[in-house]
Amino acid sequence: MTAMVKAEGVHKSFGGVQVLKGIDLEVKKGEVFCLIGPSGSGKSTFLRCINHLEKINAGRLYVDGELVGYRQKGDKLYELKDSEVAQQRRDIGMVFQRFNLFPHMTAVENVMEAPVQVKGLNRSAARQRALELLDRVGLGDKAGNYPSQLSGGQQQRVAIARALAMDPKLMLFDEPTSALDPELVGDVLDVMRDLAESGMTMIVVTHEMGFAREVGDSLVFMDGGVVVESGHPRDVLTDPQHERTKSFLSKVL
């Protein structure tokens, strides 16, 4: 199996602060890959590098064998044009901690927007597909509601449907349940579990250790901009090898 995402010595700094200090990892196709770690460890930043919302300063990052944000010719690297970056992002879905639904559009309009505007799908076909996706995340009856009329958990499920509408080959989840009431977390995780079972490649930054253990195929523990420990979630979570992993897990589990 080939890698969906491959990172080689990825560095990223904001101003003078180094946030990622050389990340090497590989995400296989069809895998649910969980990133855990304390806040400020760089896991969200790494996720945002994957679809070029952040530019990396050093190293190489590949999605499906393609360099992210750059083109290599000989030993020279060329920055991609905005339109080419947009082209790359079409295939990568992203779900944000704060949902970021478009507040001036109804749920179904949120889901339709990118297929119509980016792929040029006609509106009735896009609406049909959007309604199916909303049904799939259990919100078929909320299609006409504006985001402000939905609960946090419902908004996040609409956001997942919105990302799925572009038929991505990779889904990025940036702490998708961190802004939710504990009661609403389960619904979102259920949708993500279904998605994992359908074979979607997913990279999930999360604090939900239960989800990571149950659904995850690989898990990486990051701290201070480096990968401290990686392996199968069950092994890392039950039998951590590093002191730092042990002390982190003892606080969150």
Binding site: N51, L53, D82, S83, A86, Q87, R89, R90, I92, G93, M94, F96, R98, N100, L101, F102, E113, A114, Q117, V118, A159, R162, A163, M166
Partner: peptide, 19 residues
């Protein structure tokens, strides 16, 4: 976050601004 969400969906700068 609105701009980021639109960009993450593959929308161009112009479309993001306009839509």
């Amino acid at each position: 976050g609105q701009t980021e969400a639109a960009h993450a969906l593959g929308m161009s700068h112009g479309k993001t601004l306009r839509r």
